[in-house]
Every structure is written in C-alpha cells, then in structure tokens.
Design a binder for these strands. Structure first.
Lengths: 142, 142
DNA sequence: TATGGAGTATGAATACATTCTCAATTTAGA
DNA sequence: TCTAAATTGAGAATGTATTCATACTCCATA
C-alpha cells in the first residue's frame, strides 16, 4: 500500500504544509484504503485494540487531513459523517430525495464548465465544489 | 408582522403537514423576522427572559421548521449554523475561499437550467438545491 | 550515523452545537 | 367541550472539535 496514489497525495500534502508522517496516520490511512467508505466510529472500532491504541480524536483529525489532501471527501448521511475515497473516482454530484432519502449520483460536464466560467468572472480559482439537488425521486412523486 | 409573506408561508406549510400554530412558533418567527440573520444561540439569548420561557430545543426545532417552509436557509459558518431569511431574495449560490473564508454570492440561470435537465432525465423533481464552489478568491491566490 | 531541539502530533478529558427522549401541556377540529 | 395528535422544556445523548501536557518527527549539525 505504501506506493499507492493515496500515499503519494498524503506525503505531498504533509510535506508542503510542514506536517509530519506518524504511525497513527499510516495505520489510519491503511485502514481507510481497505474500507474505502467509513465513519469515524467504524474506524475507531476497527482500530480500537490496535497497539498502540489510537484515540478517537486522532481519527477525526486524520480523516479531516485526508479530506484536505484530496484523498477523501466527507458526506453527511443521517447523523454521521461518512468519508469516501475519491482518488481514481470521477467527480460526481448528488440528487437527494427528501422523502425516502435515496441518493442518486450524476455527473454533468456542462454544469462544471459553467461553474468554471462564473469563477473566472469573479477572479476565483475553484479547487472543488459541491452540488446537491433536493426534491422527490421518481418513486416518491408517484 | 402577522400579514407578512413569511407568515403566509409558515401557515401554509403547517396546515399542509398537519402541524400546529403555537405561541412559541409565533414568538420565534417574529424575532427571526426582526433579525433576518441569526444563530440559535442569538435567538435563545434574545428570547431568554421571554414569558413563558422558550427552550433551546424549541428554537432549534422551529428554525428547522422555517427552513422546511422555505422561509429560512441555513448556512454553516464557523462552528455554528446561521439562518438567513430568504423570502424576497432571489436564489443564489456561494463561492467560498478556503483561505480567508470570504463568501461571495452569485447566480447563474444557465446552471439552474442544466440542473433541471439532469433532474428530468432521472425522473427527479427539484424543490431546492445547493451549489458551493470552494477555492481561492482573487486576493488569496495573489 | 547519532543527537539536539523546534515544532508537530497524540490521547484523555472536556467543551461545544445540535438532536433526542419523555412526561406534561397545548392545539385543532368535530 | 372533548379528544387525538402535535408540541413543549429539561436534561441526557450524540457527533465532532478543542485543550493541554507529554511524546514523537524531522532536519540540521557533528
């Protein structure tokens, strides 16, 4: 796992921000890569009996770090925050049914192109974006 | 204030969902209308010595209700959630600078039109949406 | 290769914002 | 007025962030 794209991204982010490579970060990234989609709680349970023990605070801190590095992306789903591995994944957005909660993914290059235009017009440089459509899915609108 | 657009929206939402008009909801909506932009804490402090006393839980519940009614919209800013009055406000989206935190509003009909197209293609009916662009503003990118 | 030291990271406990639980109260409609 | 159902406040619970003293990393120097 030490040579994965994710590791490269993390190392780059760490060194360019004066941050450090630690045992805990290695362990957490490995666990994250093995699961691809987790909550902090799940990671905590998985790594609970790990030697040395890894605290919940460190897990939260490291998950945020993974987001900052562009490796993970958080998604609020129910009461907990889920973290997805987005390396090797094309960017996509979400349609959320406000009745049944179903989440549908979609991608649309035209929208992204327009976003870029808007940004340029304001002298803004986009690094990432979030687009969520809320409404009723095919089934719930009956 | 009893005849404002906001009151009409709230009443419609309540009756169409089998919910009820209560003293607390009236008091909170009035306070919200007077401020236009608040956090739950601010409202709680403002209404603290109100008779009868209004609990923080009720304030949170009512603010969520205002969002459901289309009167307010929540925005996560720092550690707290802010609620804005969006009645009489054209829909707009946000560009957030990840360095200095500045939020710039913008609107773009073309993007909204494309969103509508995507939704139709999936049999989805949009009631609302959220689009946030993250990156560096004019000043921070230097 | 070994070491010193500045600054970062850690875990435990604590703080914080928000939501939930539940018994008692209030509302809307017949 | 009566009654079913929604709402309330207090406090507990939840998920996440922060604080602080200790431990570790990294890099420069030897």
């Amino acid at each position: 796992m030490k040579h994965s794209k994710e590791w490269a991204l993390l190392r780059t982010h760490l060194s360019s921000h004066g941050l450090k490579v630690t045992k805990q970060r290695e362990v957490i990234l490995d666990a994250f890569l093995a699961m691809e989609h987790v909550t902090a709680e799940q990671l905590y349970r998985t790594l609970g009996r790990h030697r040395p023990h890894i605290g919940l605070a460190t897990i939260y801190r490291t998950l945020n770090l993974l987001c900052d590095s562009g490796i993970a992306q958080e998604r609020h789903f129910g009461s907990q925050t889920h973290y997805d591995n987005v390396v090797n994944k094309r960017h996509h957005d979400h349609m959320i049914c406000t009745k049944c909660g179903t989440i549908t993914e979609f991608e649309n290059c035209d929208i992204e192109r327009l976003q870029e235009q808007v940004a340029v017009k304001h002298g803004f440089t986009i690094t990432t974006h979030k687009l969520e459509l809320y409404g009723l899915c095919r089934h719930c609108k009956r």
